[in-house]
Simulated assay, not measured.
Amino acid sequence: MARPQEFNTQQVLRKAMAVFWEKGYEATSLADLMAATALSKSSLYGSFGDKRDLFLAAFDIYRQDRKRDMIHLLSAEPAREGIVSFYKSLFANLDSATSHNGCMSVNQAVEMAPRDLRVKAMVVEDFQTIHEVLCLAIKRGQADGSVANLSEAEDIASILVLAFPGLQLMARIGAGAEAMTNNLNVLMAHLD
C-alpha cells in the first residue's frame, strides 16, 4: 500500500520555483531542491518525476501567477493607467532580494527555450498572452481616450512586447529607479 502524501504540492512547487527562478535550471541541483522543499530525493522524484518535470510544473505555477497579476493590472480604468501600472510592476521591487531574478519567462527564453521545445512553447505562449492582453487594453484605452495613439492596437502592443524583456534585463542588471522611470516614460510615449 502506498504511503499517503504528507506535503502540500502547491507549496513544494512554489519553493522549487523560487530556487529555479533564482539560480536557473542548469545551476539548480537536486540538493538545492531537497533543501528548499524539505523533501527527500525519493519523495521529489516519486511525486514530480525528474528534475525537468519538477521544473516544468514549477515554471507553470510562475506563469499562472504572472498571467493573473498582469490581467488584474491591465484591467484598470482608464486603460492607460493599467498599462503603465503593468510596466511599473516590472521594476517595482528594485531594492528587494529577488529583483535580480528578473522575469522567469525571459530567463527561460535564453536558458532553456533554444534547446527544449516544451519550454520554448511555454515562453512563446507567455509572450503571445502579453501581446493579446496589451492589445485589449490599448483598444480600451483608444475607446476611453486614455490612449491617444490611434494606430493599430496590434502594432502598439508589438512595440510594448518588444520592450518587455529589455526593461526586465535593465532591472536585472541593476539599472536604478530613475533610469527605469525614464525608460518607461519613453516607452509609454508610444501611447500618445
Rank of each mutant, 00 (worst) to 15 (best):
155 D>H: 14
70 M>A: 11
21 W>L: 03
78 P>R: 00
110 V>I: 06
167 L>T: 03
162 L>D: 08
14 R>T: 08
149 N>E: 12
73 L>C: 06
171 A>I: 10
169 L>P: 00
53 D>L: 12
118 R>E: 15
105 S>R: 02
13 L>M: 09
78 P>G: 00
56 L>D: 03
101 N>C: 14
182 N>S: 10
80 R>N: 00
27 A>H: 03
55 F>Q: 03
179 A>V: 15
134 L>W: 00
132 E>D: 14
186 V>L: 13
29 S>Q: 05
123 V>A: 04
165 P>Y: 05
96 S>H: 12
185 N>W: 07
80 R>K: 06
45 Y>R: 07
106 V>N: 06
30 L>I: 05
108 Q>G: 02
55 F>K: 03
2 A>K: 15
27 A>R: 09
64 Q>G: 08
91 F>A: 11
46 G>E: 05
35 A>R: 13
140 R>M: 06
117 L>E: 05
27 A>S: 06
182 N>E: 15
65 D>A: 14
6 E>T: 15
149 N>I: 06
165 P>W: 04
166 G>W: 09
57 A>E: 10
109 A>K: 01
15 K>C: 14
59 F>G: 01
85 S>Q: 04
136 L>Y: 04
97 A>E: 12
55 F>D: 03
14 R>Q: 15
105 S>N: 09
99 S>I: 05
145 G>F: 00
125 E>W: 14
131 H>L: 09
87 Y>I: 02
72 H>Q: 13
35 A>P: 08
159 I>W: 10
176 G>T: 10
1 M>A: 11
166 G>T: 09
3 R>P: 07
126 D>F: 07
160 L>D: 05
90 L>R: 04
12 V>H: 04
122 M>S: 08
104 M>F: 15
41 K>L: 07
106 V>C: 15
63 R>S: 06
3 R>Q: 09
85 S>Y: 03
18 A>G: 05
25 Y>H: 01
162 L>A: 14
144 D>A: 00
134 L>G: 01
152 E>V: 03
185 N>I: 04
64 Q>L: 13
142 Q>W: 02
67 K>V: 09
107 N>S: 12
138 I>W: 02
37 T>Q: 01
159 I>H: 15
